[in-house]
Simulated assay, not measured.
Amino acid sequence: MSVVSVRRAHLGMLLWALLVGLSFPAVGVMSEGLPPLQLTALRFAIASLALWPLARRAGDWRPARRGLLLYALMGLCLAGFFGAMFWAAHRATALSMATLYVTVPLLAFAFGVAAGVERLAWRLPLILALGACGALGLAFAEARNGGGGLQFGSGELVFFGGCLSTALYPVLSKWGINRDWLSASAAARTFWSLALGGVLIGVAGSLVEPLAGLAWMTGSDLLLVVYLGLCSSAMTFWLMQRATAALTPGAVTAYGYLVPFVSMLLLFATQPEQIGWAWLPGSVLIVVAMVLLLRGDRATA
């Protein structure tokens, strides 16, 4: 893999972190009481429709049987994570969920080693551990603003299952790419995984949520869902799939540590009175971890 493609993959994941971090305020202004699983299925449907013209351009966009099975497993990973996240949202504290989520890059690294798509070396795990400590620092700083205490119950257990699912997604993608089971086009890979994941999430939503729940959407809600579908689903998963072709699963998921950092910067921009020293240690650790990640890949590319 060329140095240019690795650099572009890292830059793309920086944009990914920015888009994901900015999506949380958009979700926060939507009307209350809307069915979250059905909303996610709608987001994925919008994202899939947007990616369809790009996916069709790929000569290998139609998957073979084994490729379709792998796409279905990737879609199941997406459905598992979002289903677990929404189920646990009112059963687990924000601090507990944030603490569990920092395990995702380390889990992706472990799964990648087992699948043969990650090198068993000491440098990346140390960088991931450094970033995890930084993300935990931000989580504890946020908890001081009313995020709840640290606990472990049924909600946390289910959410950890979702963390296992989302950590497996880039590993399956990398494994399939290396064996030519999946399309060489990031758009095609994103389309199939989102489309199948959206179907699974939609089925789950129809079983546990009122079918008429989306009828309460307002015009502004619909515009926000379209925005989230295009920017926070289609674009972010495309960026992740593009990066997966050049980087390892651990390196790709490491950018999840930047999401709370982006959210923190947005908080400071809108509520500067929230600025305090409690945010500094975690922020410094995350920045150092990202710099080491960028320098390491540039040196070994």
Rank of each mutant, 00 (worst) to 15 (best):
G205C: 04
G205K: 05
G205S: 07
S206Q: 14
S206I: 09
V208L: 06
V208P: 05
E209D: 03
P210Q: 06
P210E: 10
P210H: 03
L211S: 15
A212P: 03
A212R: 13
A212S: 14
G213E: 08
G213T: 11
L214T: 12
L214Q: 10
W216V: 15
W216P: 09
W216A: 14
M217D: 09
M217S: 13
T218K: 09
G219C: 08
G219S: 13
G219F: 11
S220F: 07
S220M: 12
D221V: 07
D221W: 08
D221Q: 05
L222R: 05
L222Q: 08
L222I: 09
L223Q: 02
L223D: 00
L223W: 09
L224Y: 07
L224V: 15
L224R: 12
V225G: 00
V225H: 00
V225R: 02
V226P: 00
Y227W: 14
L228E: 05
L228R: 02
G229C: 03
L230F: 05
L230I: 11
L230G: 02
L230M: 04
C231N: 06
C231Q: 07
A234Y: 08
M235A: 15
M235P: 02
F237P: 03
F237L: 07
W238D: 03
L239G: 10
L239P: 04
L239C: 11
L239S: 08
M240C: 08
M240N: 13
Q241N: 15
R242Q: 08
A243Y: 08
A243S: 11
T244K: 01
T244W: 04
A245C: 01
A245G: 11
A245E: 06
A246V: 04
A246E: 15
A246W: 05
